[in-house]
């Protein structure tokens, strides 16, 4: 395996990996924050390319490092090698009108479902580790963490 990087002034940095099979993968981190990926099969002359924004690049990076076992639309499940059989899901949801005006403590989210609300994003402002007195508003984006069955319980009993 050959792996090297080079500076491309005015563009960014290019990382090139040649696999044992002779395939070439180039990743170009551009100054704009976007990432272009090129792949070329060993016997083929043509490159295939894709352009990713920063978030897409991070997601792909997670997949490649093996951190993500399951990727749903807005959720990831993470397995830690040091903790056997522990799979933690992190999920985001948008709060609907039905939960607007209700607090985390009032709904007793953790006792009822086992899920912890990690953060809430409202109009660009993030609240990390919100207190039980935190009152939801319609349109809030929430990040919750728990095991897969706890997440399902949260969806059913809290979100409705």
């Amino acid at each position: 395996m050959d792996f090297h990087h080079l500076s491309l002034p005015g563009i960014g940095t290019k990382y090139e990996l040649e696999t044992e099979e002779g395939d070439i993968i180039s990743v170009v981190y551009m100054e704009s924050g976007k990432v272009q990926i090129y792949t070329r099969g060993g016997a083929c002359n043509e490159y295939c390319s894709a352009e990713l924004n920063a978030m897409e690049a991070r997601r792909l990076g997670n997949v490649l490092t093996g951190a993500i076992i399951e990727a749903e639309q807005e959720g990831v499940e993470i397995a830690f090698s040091a903790l056997a059989d522990l799979r933690i899901s992190v999920h985001t949801y948008i709060i609907g009108k039905n939960l607007s005006g209700r607090s985390i403590g009032e709904m007793d989210i953790r006792s009822k479902t086992g899920v912890t609300v990690l953060a809430v994003s409202r109009e660009g402002e993030n609240t990390v580790n919100p207190r039980p007195s935190f009152v939801f508003g319609a349109g809030d984006a929430v990040v919750v963490i728990g095991e897969a069955d706890q997440i399902k319980r949260f969806e059913k009993e809290i979100l409705g």
Binding site: L6, L8, G10, K14, S26, V28, Q36, Y38, Y47, S49
Partner: peptide, 14 residues
């Protein structure tokens, strides 16, 4: 035009 994968791109940039 997605040419950064080409080996010539390095030559052009430099």
């Amino acid at each position: 035009n997605r040419k950064l994968g080409f080996r010539e791109s390095e030559t052009v940039v430099w």
